[in-house]
């Protein structure tokens, strides 16, 4: 078996054992967060690694979370159906925005700006439709009486969510692997460096690009939907909006977007950093953690463009080359 199968399975096995080791709820909570965000970051990197830098994933995540909760609250539609609908909605939006970008060859910074606008539009719509969405105050899924209900996708125990998040995370990594091993990776790498030359060897540039965009958007929406169910509270700031879009990019840049586990490392790194800063600094200096975040992002881009895991692998390669 290959590294891209073994490593995820070994990590998954260790995480699966965590609840049996008598870990605290807080520890489990951190793990769930790392896995859910790790999944979303992995979904983002599916396209980000090919030069399709999207600042629109806050929109897709928000749609995933909001559509699921709204369908439940207003129509009592189980999230088991609501989540696929939410994913379909995000995919449809990605197609509406993505296809013109592909046709008109909006790439690079311009693509990032178009997707940034998408995030802003979705976040403002959520705030604006406050009668339905609760606006800036956010929204809580109607709670099933017992607190735990498979039908309502509500679980009082964090351990259940740990396993849900674990499965989701593994799905993300295996989608990554499938893309990485297929001809699609070559096609997308070729497209990211030269669209005309790619077309001339027979790559259908438009179809390849839109396919990875839709895949990435759909998985992100799924992550958002599960995240909303886990938190049992969503608001435009935490699951949508420009803040979320930027958070995704920062974490992925930190962890490394070109290697399979890079986005997960980014999730672990940023969450542990945020928690540490929060505990050390407390709430006294409100923006201190974000400031340090921003500073670190700049440092990462300058000194470690491949991210933590990317730099580690590059170092190992160099050591191996030296030894040989």
């Amino acid at each position: 078996m290959q590294r891209d199968v073994i490593a995820p399975l070994v990590i998954a096995a260790l995480v699966a054992l965590a609840p049996f080791a008598g870990q605290t709820d807080y520890f489990i909570h951190i793990l769930v967060q790392i896995l859910l965000w790790g999944f979303i970051y992995t979904a983002w990197s599916l396209m980000g690694r090919f030069g399709l830098v999207s600042l629109g994933h806050g929109a897709f995540m928000g749609i995933g979370a909001y559509v699921t909760v709204l369908l439940w609250n207003f129509f009592e539609l189980t999230p088991w159906i609501g989540m696929p609908i939410a994913v379909a909605a995000a995919v449809a939006l990605a197609a509406i925005v993505g296809w013109p970008c592909v046709r008109l060859r909006i790439v690079g910074h311009y693509f990032a700006l178009v997707t940034l606008a998408l995030t802003a539009v979705v976040a403002l719509s959520i705030v604006g439709l406050r009668d339905i969405t609760g606006g800036s105050l956010g929204l809580t899924p109607n709670r099933e009486a017992a607190g735990t209900s498979i039908y309502a996708f509500q679980f009082a125990s964090k351990t259940v969510f740990l396993y849900v998040a674990l499965v989701l995370w593994l799905i993300g990594l295996f989608v990554w692997r499938a893309v990485d091993r297929g001809m699609g990776r070559y096609a997308l790498q070729a497209i990211s460096s030269d669209e005309d030359a790619s077309a001339s060897v027979g790559i259908n540039v438009g179809v390849e690009k839109i396919r990875i965009i839709l895949l990435s958007a759909g998985l992100t929406a799924l992550g958002g939907a599960v995240f909303g169910q886990y938190q049992m509270y969503i608001n435009p700031e935490t699951v949508s909006g420009i803040g979320v879009s930027l958070q995704i990019v920062f974490a992925v840049v930190a962890g490394g977007m070109f290697v399979q586990l890079g986005p997960t490392v980014g999730a672990a790194f940023t969450l542990i950093l945020a928690e540490t800063l929060r505990i050390l600094i407390g709430n006294e200096y409100h923006a201190a953690d974000t400031t340090i975040y921003g500073l670190m992002l700049v440092l990462f881009i300058i000194f470690m463009p491949k991210g933590i895991l990317g730099a580690v692998f590059a170092g190992l390669e160099r050591a191996k080359a030296k030894a040989a």
């Binding site: 005309d196 030359a197 790619s198 077309a199 001339s200 060897v201 027979g202 790559i203 259908n204 540039v205």
Partner: peptide
């Protein structure tokens, strides 16, 4: 563009 190559034309740009 991406179907031209099927006709046996290859472009060295």
């Amino acid at each position: 563009a991406h179907r031209i190559i099927e006709t046996g034309i290859a472009h060295v740009p």
